[in-house]
Structure formats: structure tokens, C-alpha cells
């Protein structure tokens, strides 16, 4: 069986485990996302059919909760903190610069699959405001003109 075929077989097992429990859709979607890295259309179709729901219902849940992604995230996920402290310290300008530099809107992934740009709520590092993270690396007191230099470190 191909790798993808195996994943779909696992997805069907996940569905079978939760099919009859009340509110089973959420755990299925969470586990499916862990398995596939995101919830693309084909995966949502399998979930809808398996759970006896319509694709609309599944998609509605997928877009309601921030935890679900419709497309796989990039190798490096950039999160710019938009909490109050970071915001007043100029996080928006940093975010705009990142968006401009990567040529993608917030919430999307670059075509080469390297970077995903997200805006997040307060990450609790207000003393370092404005803050951004790239996967697990934290960058504090950043300015828009530092953005290119930081990202270039991650380019292959």
C-alpha cells in the first residue's frame, strides 16, 4: 500500500472509533489533521461520508476553529504575536513586512512550501515585544528591517 493509501486506511479506523459517539466529529478532525498535517478537501470528504455528515458541516467546523488548517503548513511556521503589548510596539508593521517579503497574505503558505505566515494571540513574552516565532525559535524586539535577515537563515 502507498503511504497515502495507508493514511486513508488509518483515517477510516479513526472514523470507526468515533462514529457512534456524540460529538465525535471534533476528535476525528483533530486526529485526521495530526495524520495528514491538514484537512484538505479529499480528507474532509472521507470524514463527511464516514461520519454521516455533509461536507458543508465538516467544512463549517474546519473553518470555525483556528486549530484546523485546510492546506498543509510550511516547513517553517512564522507566528507574529498580535497581543496588546506587541501590537502597540509595532507588530503590524512587522507582519506587513513579512507578508510583502514572502509575497503571501497572512494565513497562507509560500508556493515552495517553506514558510507559513500566521498572526497569533498573545504568546506571553510581552517583555520582548514585538515578538515573532519561527517554529520553536523566538525573536524579540524585532523591527521590520530585520525580517529579511531572519528568514534568510532558514532558506536552504
Amino acid at each position: 500500500m502507498t503511504e497515502l493509501g495507508e493514511k486513508y486506511a488509518q483515517l477510516n479506523q479513526i472514523i470507526a472509533r468515533h462514529r457512534d459517539e456524540p460529538g465525535g466529529l471534533m476528535p476525528v478532525m483533530q486526529e485526521a489533521q495530526a495524520l495528514f498535517g491538514a484537512l484538505p478537501m479529499e480528507v474532509q470528504e472521507v470524514i463527511a461520508d464516514g461520519m454521516g455528515k455533509t461536507l458543508s458541516e465538516v467544512y463549517g467546523v474546519a473553518t470555525f476553529y483556528a486549530q484546523f488548517a485546510l492546506a498543509p503548513k510550511g516547513k517553517y511556521v512564522i507566528s507574529v504575536c498580535m497581543g496588546t503589548a506587541c501590537y502597540v510596539k509595532g507588530a503590524q508593521a512587522v507582519l506587513d513586512k513579512l507578508s510583502e517579503y514572502l509575497e503571501i497574505p497572512v494565513g497562507e503558505t509560500t508556493e515552495d512550501g517553506e514558510f507559513t505566515l500566521d498572526a497569533t494571540r498573545c504568546i506571553g513574552a510581552c517583555g520582548l515585544a514585538p515578538v515573532m516565532t519561527v517554529n520553536d525559535d523566538v525573536y524579540g524586539r524585532i523591527t521590520p528591517d530585520q525580517v529579511a535577515g531572519i528568514l534568510d537563515k532558514y532558506r536552504a
Binding site: 458543508s56 473553518t63 470555525f64
Partner: peptide, 20 residues
């Protein structure tokens, strides 16, 4: 029993739409 439209997204961005 068709269900091809539904609420999508949340808050001010909510729309009634089809998937994708």
C-alpha cells in the same frame, strides 16, 4: 437532506457558503 450550503468561518467573517 442535501446540505450543500452552510455557515463558514466565524465572527464578522461568517458567510453562508459551499465548502471552499
Amino acid at each position: 437532506a442535501v446540505g450543500v450550503i452552510g455557515p463558514v468561518k466565524r465572527g464578522f467573517n461568517t458567510t453562508i457558503a459551499s465548502p471552499w
